[in-house]
Structures are given as structure tokens and as C-alpha cells.
């Protein structure tokens, strides 16, 4: 009896694992062979370039993962569609061992370039990459290509999120009527911390008397606590809010309900709340993706450390036209961008 009972439990657990495993990983969308277009402009290569990406959240997260996926789609379009470039993706890989397995699987099944799009994947990637010397890997956000460890086929990339943070801090400080800004951060590290610190410095730069309150929830996914953080900022008098990670959707809703404004980062967040989002800093990864593809075609599979900046057009400030921003404030923002590009403004002075 006892063993049977146990078997039933285990069976149930396995069933659950099965369902949960096949859901978020959303198996690399089997790319249907593109219908043969009559007379493509360029002669298609015999074998399409095969690119795979592993992402911590979903391709529709309005944040980190979506920005990269959309970048890949644009590059695919420019290269002439699925016939020339295949994209496979695994989303929702918040579990690092699962992600590591996916990285290995993609490399083993002949993908030419594998992107490990999450700073948590670095350690695993450093171990996997040497086993597949023919495959180009890239990961971010980081600037470590593991060359010191003798790895030669890993690129690294990072967004200088503090630059856009600084500029939006300028806009928020000048727009604020209460003189209080609230930043709802996820985990005090990496990309999020760069953005939060840049925003705070930008606000103080434009308006030294402004109060900038900062919170972290300690999680990239806790929507409920993120909403509570936004509520707290509003109780403390903030009328301009911002934050980072996919959990900010909770905070954007609170901003909307309370008539506060929101500043987005990583991707255009205005579709979530069209009357609430003033502007977003967008990560445009296409330049980096193209260079990595180009390098691979020349046999360079790793060793490059890329950054997204305003200067190389990897960072884009996108206003939401539904929320009017006074011209003089837009001018101040443009000045700040110019100052950062010229090196006259350091978005992270200390």
C-alpha cells in the first residue's frame, strides 16, 4: 500500500513537472520553412544562420527580454527573413540550471550563435562555451568575456542604463509639481542599480532641491510588493515614478490609479498605461546583434565587450505622444543627452 501511495504522489509530481516544463520554455517555435518567395533580391545562402536566445522573462514583458527579442526580429527582417536567419528562443528561464541546459542544447544542435540574455547565466556559460568551440556565444548584462579564463568564443554586452536614467531624471524633476520623485527598484544590482542611480543623479542635477526616494523590493518578479512600493512613494508625496524589471507593471497600475506619471526603461512601456507613461528608455540591441553576426561570419566568435549608449544609438529616448511634455523640458533633456555623448556629463559621478 505504502509504495503505491508513494507512486501516485510521484506520478502526480511528474505530471506537474511536465506541464510546468513545457509551458514557460515555450519550445523554440518550430520555424516553418518560409514559403519560397519568387525571386528574392539576394541569393539566399544554402543554410540559414541559426540564432538562439535564452531569456529570464517573457518576450512580451515590456522590459529586458522583449527588448532583445524585438531586436532579433528587426535584424532577421533586415537579413531577408526566416529563410536567411532562424531564431529560436526559450523564455521564462528564471531557473539557471534549466537555462544552462538550454544553452547546451542549442549549441549541441548546431546553432551558430547562442545568446544567454541574463547576467545570472554567466557562470554557466563560462563552463559551457569551451565545449563548443565552433559556436559563438554572447551574454549580458556584463562586460566579462571570460578571456582571463582562457575562453575565446564568448562576447559580452551591457546597457549603460544610467545614461537614459539620468536624462529621464532630468525630465521628471522638471515636470514634478510636488518636488518628490519615487524610484521603485527590483534588486539592488546590475542594470537596475545603474538605472536607478542615474535617474537619481539626473534629477538632482536638473533640480538640486528635489527629493528622490528609492526603494528596492528584492525581487524581479514580485508584482504585489512592487505595487505596494509605488503606493508608499505616492503616500510620501511623489508625483513622478519610475522603476525597473518586469515586475514594474504592478507599479505602473498604481501610478495610473493615482494620477502620477511613470518613466519606463528597457522597453517602451506606454502601451500598459497610455496616459501615464511620459517617456521610456529603449534598449536597441540591433547594432550589437549585427556586429556579432558579422564577426561570426569572419570567424571571430568571442572576446568583444559591447555597450549600449546614446552615442552608439543603442539607447533611445522615446516620448509617449499622449502625455505632453513642455518644449523647454524636452530641450533640457536633449541638452543632457548631448552632454552625456560629449562626455561633459557623467551620469554616475560617484
Amino acid at each position: 500500500m505504502k509504495t503505491k501511495v508513494f507512486q501516485v504522489g510521484v506520478l502526480f509530481l511528474l505530471l506537474a513537472f511536465f506541464v510546468s516544463a513545457c509551458a514557460p520554455a515555450a519550445t523554440p517555435a518550430p520555424q516553418e520553412p518560409a514559403p519560397q518567395e519568387p525571386a528574392p533580391q539576394e541569393p539566399a545562402p544554402a543554410e540559414p544562420l541559426k540564432v538562439a536566445v535564452i531569456m529570464p522573462s517573457s518576450i512580451t514583458d515590456y522590459a529586458f527580454s522583449q527588448s532583445f527579442y524585438e531586436g532579433l526580429k528587426i535584424v532577421q527582417e533586415e537579413m531577408g527573413g526566416e529563410g536567411n536567419m532562424e531564431i529560436a528562443f526559450s523564455e521564462g528561464m528564471f531557473n539557471v540550471p534549466d537555462a544552462a541546459a538550454a544553452i547546451r542544447d542549442y549549441a549541441a544542435t548546431g546553432y551558430d550563435i547562442v545568446f544567454a540574455h541574463g547576467s545570472q547565466y554567466g557562470t554557466s556559460l563560462a563552463q559551457i562555451a569551451p565545449d563548443f568551440p565552433e559556436t559563438a556565444f554572447a551574454w549580458g548584462t556584463s562586460l566579462d568575456t571570460f578571456q582571463a579564463q582562457g575562453v575565446t568564443n564568448v562576447h559580452a554586452y551591457q546597457a549603460e542604463a544610467q545614461e537614459g536614467g539620468f536624462v529621464m531624471g532630468v525630465i521628471a524633476a522638471l515636470m514634478s509639481e510636488s518636488g518628490v520623485l519615487g524610484i521603485a527598484g527590483p534588486v539592488e544590482a546590475g542594470d537596475a542599480k545603474l538605472y536607478v542611480d542615474g535617474f537619481a543623479h539626473g534629477a538632482k542635477y536638473a533640480r538640486p532641491d528635489v527629493t528622490v526616494n528609492i526603494t528596492y523590493t528584492g525581487s524581479f518578479s514580485d508584482v504585489s510588493l512592487m505595487a505596494a512600493a509605488a503606493n508608499t512613494h505616492i503616500s510620501a508625496g511623489a508625483d513622478m515614478l519610475t522603476g525597473s524589471s518586469q515586475s514594474v507593471v504592478g507599479a505602473i497600475g498604481v501610478a495610473k490609479d493615482n494620477g502620477a506619471y511613470w518613466f519606463g526603461t528597457q522597453w517602451d512601456q506606454s502601451p500598459i498605461a497610455p496616459e501615464t507613461v511620459v517617456a521610456s528608455q529603449i534598449f536597441d540591441w540591433t547594432g550589437i546583434i549585427k556586429d556579432i553576426i558579422d564577426s561570426a561570419s569572419k570567424g571571430v566568435l568571442g572576446g568583444k565587450a559591447y555597450t549600449l549608449t546614446f552615442k552608439n544609438e543603442g539607447l533611445v529616448l522615446k516620448y509617449n505622444d499622449a502625455v505632453p511634455v513642455p518644449d523647454e523640458i524636452k530641450a533640457a533633456a536633449a541638452d543632457a543627452i548631448q552632454g552625456i555623448m560629449d562626455g561633459e556629463i557623467d551620469p554616475l559621478p560617484y
Partner: peptide
Amino acid sequence: LQATQGISGIGLHLFGLGLSTLLFK
């Protein structure tokens, strides 16, 4: 079925997590 409660509960959680994500997609 008198299955071990701890195990079946964790199973139910993973089932709900997976299915809700799948249906969301």
C-alpha cells in the same frame, strides 16, 4: 488516493504555475 500530501501539494503548485503560464500565452 492517499498520496503523500507534501509531494502532491508541490505537484499541484507546479501544475498551476505551468498551466497558468501556458494559458496566459
